[in-house]
C-alpha cells in the first residue's frame, strides 16, 4: 500500500524496481490473483482499448445524440495526405484519441481511463508509443500498471472526477498517467516518469468541465486529442531531463485545490463555459428538449 509518489520513489530506489513492478506486486496481493491472471486481466483492457482507438479511423462513428462524430476519420484522412503541420505521430495520436471518444459517445465499448470522458487519451498514447518505440503487447500491459498507479495517487490525494475537479481532473489525470507510463516504456527513470506526470497536470491546470448539453461529447473529444498530445510532449520533456520544480505530490495537491476553487458552473453542470454559450444552449435544447 502506498499513497504518495514520494513513497513509490523511495521503494523503487531501495529495491531497484520500476513503478510497474511495484504496482503489479501490490495488485497481486490486493486482488489475490497470480501474476499471470493479473496480466491476462489487464490484457482484456488493452484489447478493448486497441479496438476503440482504431474503430472510428476508417468509418464515421456518430454519437447517440447526433451532436458529434466523424472527426477521427477526418484527421486520419488528412494525415494520409502527408501535408500536416505537426507530423504523422501527432496527427495519428489525435485521430486515435478522437476514435475512442467517438466510440464512447456512440454507446460502444471502452475502458474508463480514468473516466469515460477521458477514455481516449491512454489508448491513443499507448498505441502511439507502441509504434514509435517498437513495443510488444506485454510492454504495454506493464505500462498500464504504471499508468494505473499514477492514477491511484491522484484519486487518493485529489480527484479524477470532472464534477469535483473540472476537466483537469479527468483529461489532466489521463495525460499524467499516460506520460508517466510512456517514460517508463521508453527507458526513463522513475523520477523522469513523475516529472512527466507533473508536466502533464501542470500544462492544463485549471481546465474547466463544460460539456454541451451535459453530454460527454463536446468539448470532451477535443480535450482527449489535445490530452494525448500533452502526454507525448510531457514525456519528451521528461526524457530530455527537464525537471519539474514542484514535485508530483504537490502538483496533485495544487490541482485538487484549483478544482475545489472552480465554481460549480464549471464542474460538469453544463451551466458555464462552452455549455452556456448561445450555441451550446441551442444544441442542448435541440437534444434534450
Amino acid at each position: 500500500m502506498f499513497n504518495k509518489a514520494e513513497e513509490i520513489l523511495e521503494v523503487c530506489k531501495l529495491e531497484n524496481k520500476s513503478i510497474s513492478d511495484i504496482i503489479i506486486e501490490k495488485e497481486i496481493e490486493h486482488l489475490g490473483l497470480t501474476r499471470q491472471q493479473l496480466i491476462e486481466k489487464m490484457r482484456e483492457s488493452l484489447e478493448v482499448m486497441k479496438h476503440s482507438a482504431t474503430e472510428a479511423l476508417e468509418k464515421e462513428v456518430k454519437s447517440v445524440s447526433g451532436l458529434t462524430g466523424g472527426n477521427s476519420k477526418k484527421i486520419e484522412d488528412y494525415k494520409k495526405k502527408g501535408k500536416t503541420l505537426s507530423g504523422d505521430l501527432i496527427n495519428s495520436a489525435m485521430a486515435k484519441a478522437f476514435s475512442t471518444s467517438e466510440v464512447n459517445a456512440s454507446m460502444g465499448k471502452i475502458v474508463a481511463a480514468p473516466t469515460a470522458g477521458a477514455s481516449g487519451i491512454l489508448p491513443s498514447a499507448f498505441l502511439s508509443a507502441k509504434e514509435k518505440l517498437n513495443l510488444s503487447d506485454d510492454d504495454l500491459i506493464k505500462g498500464l500498471f504504471t499508468a494505473g498507479g499514477v492514477g491511484e495517487i491522484i484519486a487518493k490525494n485529489a480527484t479524477i472526477s470532472g464534477a469535483e475537479g473540472g476537466c483537469q481532473a479527468e483529461c489532466g489525470s489521463a495525460a499524467a498517467m499516460a506520460a508517466a507510463a510512456i517514460v517508463e516504456m521508453a527507458g526513463g527513470s522513475v523520477e523522469d516518469s513523475f516529472n512527466a506526470a507533473s508536466f502533464a497536470l501542470t500544462n492544463i491546470m485549471g481546465l474547466v468541465c463544460d460539456p454541451i448539453a451535459g453530454l460527454v461529447e463536446y468539448p470532451c473529444a477535443l480535450r482527449n486529442a489535445s490530452g494525448v498530445v500533452n502526454a507525448l510532449i510531457s514525456a519528451d520533456m521528461a526524457l530530455a531531463k527537464v525537471e519539474s520544480l514542484v514535485p508530483f505530490d504537490e502538483v496533485v495537491e495544487a490541482m485538487y485545490k484549483v478544482g475545489k476553487a472552480l465554481p460549480e458552473s464549471l464542474r460538469e453542470t453544463a451551466l458555464g463555459g462552452l455549455a452556456a454559450t448561445p450555441t451550446g444552449k441551442r444544441c442542448s435544447k435541440k437534444i434534450l428538449g
Binding site: 500500500m1 499513497n3 504496482i23 495488485e27 490486493h30 486482488l31 486481466k41 489487464m42 482484456e44 483492457s45 478493448v48 454519437s63 447517440v64 466510440v103 464512447n104 459517445a105 456512440s106 454507446m107 460502444g108 465499448k109 471502452i110 475502458v111 474508463a112 481511463a113 480514468p114 473516466t115 469515460a116 470522458g117 477514455s119 491512454l122 498500464l144 500498471f145 499508468a147 494505473g148 498507479g149 492514477g151 491511484e152 484519486a155 487518493k156 479524477i160 498517467m177 453530454l215 460527454v216 461529447e217
Partner: peptide
C-alpha cells in the same frame, strides 16, 4: 483513505458514454 485497485482507475470496461 480508500484502498484502490488499478482496475478501479483503468476501468470499468463499459458501454459509453458516461460511467
Amino acid at each position: 483513505m480508500k484502498d484502490y485497485s488499478v482496475f478501479d482507475i483503468l476501468g470499468p470496461i463499459m458501454i459509453g458514454p458516461s460511467s
